[in-house]
Design a protein around this nucleic acid. Structure first.
Length: 650
DNA sequence: GAGCACTGC
């Protein structure tokens, strides 16, 4: 049924794609656009002389869409229909329909900026405005100038599309109705004081009506989710106690102004859901709960990445945590923010996927009206050093040459240029150097790439490779690990930890993990996330094979680094780290409590998760990242006190 | 004395 919706406009799509080389398809969820459009293009000859590429912001979406489309087209996956995401590429010479993440297509442009093997490139989920898809838009516009026959299809779910029309200029438009079940939206009448209490109240109120269906509660972060679960749990216990020993029908529960009979009260199971939660616990939200109502307290992970079956009720706090980059302070800020209307609608849509849904917003209609239309696109919130270097490597020098829907601020570009100059990736004229050409070939942040390159000549490549791989993944430790209080665990953790370096601790952990006979039980015993470690392993393999193919000529890249003689091999690692990421070092403040970052002189503290003993703080540190939450913290920190280096050697 | 949203190469 869903699939008919886009079939209705099939002729219109084909016709308009002949009229213009750029087509904008506005289609909400449930229109079947991502699964049916490839087939339409195939049957109209678009795969005869080239490939149809479909970009997705997320890996799982690319993989699952490829599976569905290959079965619709009656072919094997990896043959006519292929997927290319990091670590997973099953394309062959026969592949004519290619699903890929937007990042893969941007990387492909480094080698082939005119996308010559493609006849059509479809950018799906364009409304999400991911960093890579925004870069892709500009690359496609440039490619079309040289290859006017290249067809570009932009698929967006929002009705506000003027920015796309303006950007792509000669563009044809097709609108497709989506098919969603009706959704009933309720706002609170007046602003509430405590949104967690209000969310708990809304949950109880939903449960007091006998309508079946699971409840999805959107909250900003882990901390808020844990306290929501705590409050709800204690309320449920109270209710249970009230009813204890009595016949259910005789118990009247009062939920606000409503009273309900305990015989109508459904048992509830409360499930937290956020990305840092161990995988096994995340997966519980997909398990059917018999005769129970699931209450899923989730972050934005449930807004786009995960779809949970059975949800009919959504409770929306209207809040999220959003990271943004402060170019002036040279740090990242993770702040509690009011969501956009687009985000509120997306959250609401999660209630109507299977049948009529109900949405309870913990904010007034007036607050909704005052919300910004859209979330600020990622490209305006992020450090653009890496994409800037990628564009420079493609010969796009002045950023003014590069078409963008929203251009980052001057300050943001200046940070990118300054960082790249300090890494030796750009020269003073702003042209890419030999070092820059090496850095851009390594698919990781430029600062990690530089570390890998210099470590080749500094006797510590394997260790730096392990370190960079571990820094590229999420924190592997399970927070609130239940085994963390027992003595054996503490001893084991002591063995892993290096008391003056989080970086070395990560390397230790990786090496012990690799040496363990049974990695799974090793992870279970130490409170380590096995999937995170496996991911680090894959990154390590990929980075190693790429660096192996590079011919690093020390004379060409102006390498004059010469380490002193060290007894401890770890010292080579730390010394290299200090050299390669001196822009991420900090000096102890006279208050003996804070540090000052080397460049912007920001006042920062070492994060509590660090192994560094807070009673004797080192004078000089190197850190991996600097994020401002309640205060400004540096995370993943190593002491550099044993080295007498304040300035980088050139 | 008090803690990091979500993606991706």
């Amino acid at each position: 049924m869903e699939e008919l919706l886009i079939s209705i406009v099939q002729d219109e799509i084909v016709h308009k794609l002949k009229l213009s080389n750029t087509l904008l398809i506005i289609a909400s969820t449930g229109s079947g656009k991502s699964t049916l459009l490839p087939g339409i293009l195939v049957s109209n000859g678009y795969t005869d002389n080239g490939i149809v590429g479909i970009s997705q912001p997320r890996r799982v979406a690319a993989i699952s869409l490829a599976k569905r489309v290959s079965s619709l087209l009656n072919c094997k996956i990896g043959g006519f229909v292929g997927v290319s995401v990091r670590f997973h590429n099953n394309t062959t010479a026969q592949t004519r329909v290619l699903f890929a993440t937007d990042g893969i297509l941007v990387r492909e442009a480094l080698i082939d900026p005119i996308f010559s093997r493609f006849s059509v490139i479809i950018v799906d989920e364009a409304h999400e405005r991911s960093l890579r898809s925004d870069v892709l838009f500009g690359l496609l516009v440039i490619a079309q100038r040289r290859r006017p026959e290249l067809k570009v299809v932009i698929m967006s779910a929002t009705l506000e599309y003027e920015n796309f029309v303006k950007f792509f200029k000669d563009v044809q438009l097709v609108k497709v109705e989506g098919r969603q079940h009706p959704i009933e939206i309720h706002h609170i009448r007046s602003e509430c004081e405590d949104y967690l209490e209000a969310a708990v109240f809304a949950t109880l109120m939903i449960n007091s009506r006998s309508e079946p269906g699971d409840i999805l509660v959107f909250l900003p972060g882990q901390e808020e989710i844990e306290s929501f679960c705590g409050i709800l749990n204690s309320k449920l216990k109270k209710i249970e106690q009230e009813a204890k020993g009595k016949t259910p029908k005789s118990v009247l529960l009062r939920i606000g102004k409503r009273t309900c009979n305990y015989s109508q009260w459904m048992q509830m199971v409360i499930l937290p859901l956020y990305a840092a939660l161990p995988l096994a616990q995340q997966e519980l939200v997909f398990v059917k709960a018999h005769n129970m109502r699931k209450v899923i307290a989730a972050t934005n992970i449930a807004e786009t990445s995960l779809t949970i079956p059975g949800v009919r009720f959504v409770v929306d706090s209207g809040l999220e945590k959003q990271k943004s980059f402060s170019a002036k302070r040279g740090i990242e800020v993770l702040a509690l923010k009011i969501i956009s209307k687009a985000s509120a609608r997306q959250r609401a849509g999660r209630a109507g996927r299977e049948s009529k849904g109900f949405v309870y917003r913990i904010y007034t209609k007036d607050s909704f009206d005052k919300m910004p239309e859209f979330t600020t696109p990622e490209i305006l919130r992020t450090n653009v050093t890496q994409p800037f270097l990628e564009l420079a490597a493609m010969g796009i020098k002045g950023i003014s040459e590069f078409p963008m829907i929203d251009s980052p601020s001057q300050e943001s570009f200046l940070v990118a240029i300054a960082t790249l100059c300090r890494l030796g990736a750009l020269d003073r004229a702003g042209s890419i150097t030999e070092m820059g050409k090496l850095i851009v070939k390594i698919p990781t942040s430029p600062i990690y790439a530089k570390l890998l390159i210099i470590s080749r000549h500094l006797n510590c490549f394997d260790e730096i490779l392990t370190m960079v791989s571990m820094l590229s993944v999420d924190v592997p430790w399970i927070t609130n690990f239940s085994g963390s209080s027992n003595k054996g665990f503490k001893n084991a953790k002591m063995r892993i930890s290096n008391t003056s370096s989080d970086h070395l601790t990560l390397i230790n952990l990786y090496n012990l993990y690799k040496k363990s006979k049974n990695p799974e039980s090793f992870c279970a015993a130490f409170g380590i996330k096995h999937n995170v470690m496996k991911y680090a392993e894959q990154i390590r393999i990929q980075l190693e094979s790429i660096v192996d193919t590079l011919s690093i000529d020390a004379t060409k890249i102006n390498m004059k680094l010469q380490p002193p003689e060290f007894e401890d091999p770890n010292d080579y690692v730390l010394w290299t780290l200090a050299q390669g990421s001196w822009i991420k070092t900090a000096i102890l403040d006279p208050d003996k409590l804070h540090y000052r970052t080397i460049l912007e002189k920001q006042k920062v503290k070492i994060h509590l998760s660090s192994v560094i003993n807070r009673t004797k703080l080192p004078n000089y540190i190197v850190y991996d990242e600097c994020v401002s939450t309640s205060t400004t913290y540096v995370r993943i920190v190593s002491s550099l006190d044993k080295f007498d280096i304040r300035k980088p050697e050139k």
